[in-house]
Structures are given as structure tokens and as C-alpha cells.
Write a protein that binds this DNA or RNA. Structure first.
Lengths: 172, 172
DNA sequence: AATGAAATCGACCAGCA
DNA sequence: TGCTGGTCGATTTCATT
């Protein structure tokens, strides 16, 4: 390891390349991947299985287009809670379970949760906000509408700087 | 259509079920899906192809575990820009291109961008903030650390309320 | 839009470096 | 441990309804 003490598996360059490929597009044949990496199909298969076992690959999923479902309205809502009963972990869970809520972050500072939700129209957005306020110990909410999403659907491998990457690669 | 005027394809219940399945897990056999939906394998395949062609399914990708890469630190940063040269679309693009930046939202209000980034340590986080400030016409930034992510990796189908769902389903 | 058969591709196993 | 090559089963494709 070159850099910081990181609780990471050690990957070789081939692993990182492979992960970069399939994080971007897994709708390709094993042959394609094998050619790209100068490996046999079996070897690619072997590495994929290992990466799944180690929970590096958490799953293979279809990325759906929100617009196809009329989900064109996105809001970022800051939620403040009353700090009576310690850190209410379950408030976060309740927020996450509301229909239309996509992401819930518990943060430091006076605003406790940042919630990103995606719906079809203003009526549904109002319902979400009402549902949030109805949650016990939710104190106050403040929402902003999103006019444009520039980056979305996090791709870890694509966002790695050279330094971050070198913290992962071993020579083996 | 029952509800609001939505720019959506029309789906039947089978499409919605299918999409719900594969958005959650596409690492299953066609047989599994066919059984689940009471359809033949070929029929499932046919529908999948159609949904890809219509860009409802935007891609099949591997979901990677950020912890495996030591990416344990998440921050939400609000970025204000100077409004000299109109809405600078390119500021959003520049923010999105920074290593470690995952999501960039352009919002209404005095804070113009909300940026979510994920890195390995504080040093890298400081670098991102510095890079943001270095962008032309970026005025001010304010960051909060995320202590817990309750919901992440948006799954649209799972977040649809009955109402949202009924806005999509036709009888055909 | 769905079917069934033929061609293609992926999963798994035994063995090897 | 990481890889090879071959076999079998699954998937993709296409003509047909």
C-alpha cells in the first residue's frame, strides 16, 4: 500500500480495469471483456465471481430512465429534527421509506438530514413534504427544486483520481 | 392515462413488474424472470429488448461497493457562483468532472449548486474543495460531512407510490 | 406480441503452472 | 492462487403465427 491506511481489498490493475468496464456497461459478452483485458473468458469469469464473493460487486442492476416514468421533478430537502431522544436513527429510515424519496443523508450541523426525492408533479412533492413533517420529532423542512442534474448515478471507478487509484493497486 | 399529463411511455403491468425485478437484480436467469411473470423466456427477452430500444432501460451496470475502494468519506457541498455571465452551465460540468464528485444538482435559490462527493480521506476532500473554489466564477462553498447514508442508489420502481404507478399503467 | 428451433454464449469443472 | 480448455446448459436470434 502506498497511501493512507485504507480498509480496502488489494486489487491488481486488471481488477481495476475490469471493474471500470462493468461499472459502465455490463451488457457485453465475456468475449468483449476478455479481449479488452487480454485474458481468457474463463479468467474473466473467475475474477468476476471472486469480486462478487468479496462484495466488491454488490449486484448487477438495470439503470432505468426516470423520464420514462414521468419522474421529472427533483427536490433537495433539508430536514431538522428535535434532539430530544438522542440520535433518532429511525427518523432516517422513515424518511427513506417515503414514496419518491431516493437518497437520505444524515449530516453534521444544525440541519440533520438531507433528502433527495424525485416525483412526477408538484402535488406529489407536496405530499412528500407533508409526510416528512408528519414524522415524529421532525421539526422543520426546507426544500429547493432542482433545475438540472449535471452528474448523477455515481460511478466510483470513473471518479477515482490517480492518487485514489494508487491507494488501491498493489503490485501483485 | 388516468393522472397528470405525463411524457411517459405507456406500460402494462407486466412491464412494470419486469422493470421492478431487474432494477433490483439483473443477475438472474431468464427462467427466473419468466416464472415470476408467468411468461415464456422468449417473451421476457422480447420485452427487455423493446425496453432497451425505447431507452427505458438505459443500461446494465455493476453496482460497486464504495467501501471496497476505501471511499468512506462523503460530503455535501453547496456552491454559490457569481451571476455575471448568465447561467454558467459549464460551471456545473466542471464541478461534475472533478475527481471524487458523484452528483451535481443545479438548484433554484441563492445557493446555485449542490454537490455530493465521495473520497478516501480528509486530504482528498480538501483538494476537491480547493478545486471547486479554483473554478472561474465560483464564489463560495459550504460543506457538510455525511455521517450516515440511509438510502442510496436510487431505485425508481421501488419508490413509486400507488398513485405514481397508476399514472403509468394502461390497460392494454 | 409471443412462440419454438437453431446458433451462440456463459457457467462450471478438472487439471495445470 | 490464478488461469486454461472443454462440456453442458442457458441465452440470443429469427422465421413463423
Amino acid at each position: 500500500m502506498t497511501g493512507a491506511a485504507i480498509d480496502a481489498d488489494e486489487f491488481d490493475e486488471t481488477d481495476l480495469e475490469l471493474l471500470g468496464c462493468i461499472e459502465d456497461d455490463f451488457d457485453v459478452s465475456l468475449d468483449t471483456l476478455a479481449n479488452e483485458l487480454d485474458l481468457s473468458k474463463s479468467a474473466v469469469h473467475y475474477r468476476l465471481n471472486k469480486l462478487k464473493e468479496n462484495d466488491v460487486i454488490q449486484g448487477i442492476t438495470a439503470d432505468l430512465n426516470p423520464v420514462s416514468f414521468g419522474l421529472t421533478m427533483v427536490a433537495i430537502t433539508e430536514v431538522a429534527v428535535t434532539h430530544e431522544h438522542g440520535y433518532s436513527e429511525n427518523v432516517g429510515t422513515e424518511l427513506a421509506e417515503l414514496n419518491g424519496v431516493e437518497q437520505v443523508y444524515y449530516t453534521m450541523g444544525d440541519v440533520d438530514f438531507v433528502v433527495i426525492s424525485r416525483v412526477q408533479d408538484r402535488t406529489q412533492m407536496n405530499e412528500i413534504i407533508e409526510d416528512m413533517v408528519a414524522i415524529d420529532s421532525v421539526n422543520e423542512t426546507s426544500s429547493r427544486f432542482v433545475m438540472d442534474e449535471i452528474a448523477t448515478n455515481p460511478k466510483f471507478m470513473a471518479n477515482l483520481s490517480d492518487e485514489m487509484r494508487s491507494n488501491l493497486a498493489d503490485g501483485a
